[in-house]
């Protein structure tokens, strides 16, 4: 009885006693969720256009950040470093399409998934071979001091990241809805063969979508790199994006955002108010438990397309 009270009542009492603190945790969690969504977006883009779960998205985040910070260290101005990194990511997309994807057209999705695991190892090793494995500081001028609104502490860095993410989603939404390329991407996503039959070149579309995922990876890499320093661990943040994808759905850009917010807010509130009951460190697995529960109820995620297979 006492244990039940501890788990079911005590945390809520604590929330009621410290509402401002709860609000801070909630806002902090939502902001973290935005950062997760940044990574999840790259997965969604590629899955939407090709049905491939790109295991290498985390490695692409690290790869892009390594080149960006490497160019900055060479003394390049920021705009040139951005341009150089964009060129690298587009070139990477070309190379992946030509060397990995094209020979595997018409292979089952699991083969393409395995290929992306191979890409992960290659990118992790290649990026660090060129730039080394040291921790690199990345400062793009985003303020890190706390912003105090009334009695609320808000992390300025996270606020900045939320704005960047919002802009990125808006640009992607406009790109998908209102450009011929965007329409072609959606057509390929709906049905490969139908899209090809009306003259949409699959290879070009794949190159474009991997390029866009690379650019999203660059933004995520710069934001996470500014937060943690550019280092091997950046590739591990992909693990944070997985539950986000399960919650939001693998094919929905808004789903990635909402999933990110849910995971971010949920894990922070759980860590602070429920964590002490089980010795802490719950935020890492909480997101996965949440995702597991979601899989039982709504396997396609909040905004994902319902898969109906007739046999």
């Amino acid at each position: 009885m006492e244990t039940l009270e501890h788990i079911l009542l005590q945390p809520f009492r604590s929330i009621a006693e410290t509402p401002m603190f709860f609000l801070e945790v909630l806002i902090g969690g939502l902001m973290s969720g935005v950062m997760y969504a940044l990574v999840a977006l790259g997965f969604v883009l590629i899955f939407k256009a090709s049905g491939v779960f790109n295991f290498a998205q985390g490695a692409m985040v690290l790869f892009a950040a390594l080149f960006f910070v490497g160019f900055l260290e060479l003394g390049w101005p920021v705009w040139l470093a951005v341009a150089g990194s964009v060129v690298v990511m587009v070139a990477l997309a070309f190379a992946i399409e030509r060397v990995v994807l094209r020979p595997l057209v018409n292979q089952p999705p699991i083969i393409l998934f395995m290929a992306t695991i191979g890409i992960t190892f290659f990118l992790d090793g290649f990026g660090q071979t060129i730039w080394g494995s040291d921790v690199r500081r990345l400062d793009v001028g985003i303020p890190t001091t706390p912003l105090i609104v009334g009695d609320l502490y808000i992390n300025q860095f996270d606020l900045f990241a939320a704005v960047i993410c919002g802009l990125l989603v808006t640009v992607l939404a406009l790109f998908f809805q209102f450009t011929p390329t965007g329409r072609a991407l959606r057509a390929v996503a709906d049905d490969h063969q139908a899209a090809m039959s009306v003259g949409i070149p699959l290879n070009v579309i794949w190159t474009i979508v991997w390029s866009v995922a690379g650019l999203v990876g660059l933004v995520a890499g710069v934001m996470w790199g500014s937060k943690l320093g550019v280092q091997f661990n950046l590739s591990l943040i992909a693990l944070k994006a997985l539950p986000v994808l399960i919650l939001g759905g693998f094919t929905s850009v808004p789903g990635a955002i909402v999933g990110g917010l849910l995971v971010g807010a949920g894990e922070k509130v759980a860590e602070v108010f429920w964590g002490p009951l089980v010795g802490g460190a719950v935020e890492d697995w909480f997101a996965y438990v949440l995702a597991l529960l979601f899989l039982l109820v709504r396997p396609q995620g909040l905004f994902g397309e319902r898969i109906i297979e007739r046999v």
Partner: peptide
């Protein structure tokens, strides 16, 4: 007071809000 951080420790916002604010 004990605060465990799961490997590798990329995300610690909740821990530090608890420490710094409460």
């Amino acid at each position: 007071s004990l605060f465990a951080v799961a490997h590798p420790g990329l995300e610690q916002k909740a821990t530090w809000l608890e420490i710094g604010r409460r």
